[in-house]
């Protein structure tokens, strides 16, 4: 069995997720911009991933054999920065400079700017292909490192994603793991009103992937699924996580207007009260 993550139990992961949620709303409020909705929907999954699976070393960010995490839906950068702060890659000050000129915390996650970020995102649909490249390189190197890719459900409207799903199966890649954050909201509106993506699990299965569908906010379910995906090496594995956009802040939950809008002063106050 691989050992990775920080060895956190469900309660510790829940505490970590709560702290991250606080930082997500603080960061976007301070920047007066950014994407809280998709950060809050994905943060339980990210805490589970980094808390129980990811083999990384903040003291050696370029460690060649580290596991890779590709945040393909790069606008959920506040979620990533809150995690990187938790595990010691970036300081509180760095985190709170989100979106400022010269900040290591660029608007969308960028490997050129931030230690611990493995991909320069921002343009949707590219991360799975990049992850496949990382996974193929790992296989060539005979390395046991895993490559995790998080996709948004709106994001999979991009055709390149399906090129990559097909290619991953064709190349029988066993060290590539996808998490789909199925929060059902994209930039303009609900996914089913923009371009319904339908039964994602069935579609991925038809592309040759082994799929588990879970509640992306159940720490118990998601850590089990991550453990399964981590050790599923016979081919590409995907977790389709049903989530709630804006999860944890009542007025952001399932609300398309908080896809890309920061909380104002009053909203921040209420959000922090709810998360306390």
């Amino acid at each position: 069995m691989r050992t990775g993550g920080m060895g956190l139990d469900d309660q510790a992961l829940k505490d970590m997720a709560r702290r991250c949620r606080v930082n997500i709303v603080k960061m976007t409020h301070a920047a007066n911009s950014g994407h809280p909705g998709g950060s809050l929907s994905s943060i339980d999954l990210l805490c589970g991933l980094y808390g129980t699976q990811m083999r990384v070393d903040p003291d050696n960010p370029d460690w060649p054999d580290r596991d890779r995490f590709i945040m393909s839906k790069g606008h959920a950068s506040p979620a990533v920065y809150s995690i990187l702060h938790e595990i010691g890659y970036i300081s509180e000050e760095d985190m709170m400079s989100f979106r400022e000129f010269g900040s290591v915390c660029q608007g969308h996650v960028d490997m050129k700017w931030t230690d611990g970020v493995d991909f320069s995102a921002g343009s949707l649909g590219m991360g799975l292909s990049f992850g496949l490249g990382c996974a193929l390189a790992a296989r060539m190197d005979g390395s046991s490192r895993n490559v995790w890719v998080m996709l948004g459900d709106g994001e999979i409207q991009e055709g390149e994603v399906w090129e990559a799903f097909m290619a991953a199966d064709f190349h029988s890649i066993g060290n590539l793991k996808v998490i789909v954050d199925r929060n059902r909201i994209q930039n303009d509106d609900f996914v089913h009103l923009q371009m319904e993506v339908g039964d994602v699990s069935a579609k991925l299965a038809s592309f040759g992937w082994t799929v588990k569908e879970i509640d992306g906010h159940s720490m118990n379910e998601l850590t089990d699924a991550l453990k399964w995906a981590s050790s599923h090496n016979s081919g590409p594995a995907a977790i389709v996580a049903n989530t709630v956009k804006g999860k944890g802040v009542s007025f952001m939950e399932d609300n398309p207007s908080f896809h890309g809008k920061a909380p104002d002063d009053d909203e921040l106050k209420q959000a922090l009260e709810e998360l306390s």
Binding site: M111, S129, F130, G133, L136, E160, E163, A164, A167
Partner: peptide, 21 residues
């Protein structure tokens, strides 16, 4: 590596490989 008739994917697979040495 055959990437099929899928140039967008090919470019990013190449990028991922480059990031891994």
């Amino acid at each position: 590596f055959s990437m099929g008739i899928a140039e967008q994917n090919m470019m990013l697979v190449a990028a991922g490989m480059a990031s891994s040495g």
